[in-house]
Design a protein around this nucleic acid. Structure first.
Lengths: 159, 159
DNA sequence: ATCAATTCCTAGTAATTTACTTGGTTTTCA
DNA sequence: TGAAAACCAAGTAAATTACTAGGAATTGAT
């Protein structure tokens, strides 16, 4: 039960976009370079993200992508569901699947388990916003920078 | 992010075994028939379950499988992890993977998300025992039977 | 002693999915 | 006018999935 690269790359790319798109739009190429991902492959992911209105695009030179709405209003669940399809562990408890009732009891019992797993996953991914990830990024970057400063200070201190 | 048939069939089969193995061992063939699964395929799953000591086997005629320990001591997590491997959404937060630290902040931020999803899943599957599923099965079967009785009574009442 | 039922074991395989790449076309700013 | 970008469709190698096939070893029943 693994996420595919769509979900993994997609979340990384969306975080990168959220961190960098304060001023205007940014080109896929720069996301691809920073995140070391294939630009062509990202195109496909962004086509889906655009369709889901999670990103907006501007064509032509100096064009690029920006977030479709403010990062507080985009959840990890929005992104993963767009790229991976339903995050349910089985098709029979997917959102799009009309609740079909099965005749034998074993089925219902295990179905119940799949529903609980589904709810467990959704409860996590629908309650983390892109804004929170941006905040995490910024604070961990701060920590990293002050570490670098420390080291620099140490080095300077040596002479 | 879907379970494979290994996990799905495996849990169904283990529930079937738990429900039926009160007296002695039961043959894979009967599980396969009741659950409408390929016997040969189930063999492969049971090889793994046996290795994990979740089932015991008796060879030869009249042989079959029984639970490796009491159903209160077998969790859904035990079964799924045996058949599916780690239930983590990415390899980088799997149990077997030594916590490798990545240099760039984006990685750590998304890694954090994967960890939360992993914990959400584990929290569900490690807290459901096979015994609970057996209980669910029995009570839903009771309900089903009393429904059948009701219908029978209704039919009888009509003359 | 034999036979049927069972577990156990290895290998093969068709279909599907994944993770891309290739090679364009269209749009727009400088 | 040209470069940089989004947009689009199709192809593809590798891996994975969900089995099947075919047997060997073991054991209880007759």
């Amino acid at each position: 039960m693994k996420l595919s690269t769509k979900g993994r790359y997609g979340l990384k790319a969306m975080l990168d976009l959220a961190v960098h798109c304060n001023e205007g739009q940014i080109a896929l190429k720069s996301i691809a370079e920073r995140q070391e991902l294939s630009e062509n492959y990202l195109e496909q992911l962004f086509a889906a993200l655009k369709k889901a209105k999670l990103v907006r695009s501007v064509r032509g030179s100096q064009g690029g992508y920006s977030l479709g709405r403010s990062p507080e209003k985009i959840t990890v669940g929005d992104i993963l569901r767009t790229l991976e399809g339903s995050m349910s562990p089985t098709d029979c408890v997917s959102e799009n699947c009309e609740t079909h009732h099965c005749s034998n009891s074993d089925c219902c019992v295990t179905r119940n388990v799949w529903e609980k797993i589904r709810d467990g996953i959704n409860n996590v991914i629908d309650n983390i916003t892109l804004q929170e990830l941006v905040d995490d990024y910024n604070s961990s970057n701060e920590a990293l920078n002050s570490q670098v400063e420390d080291v620099t200070t140490d080095v300077l201190r040596q002479d």
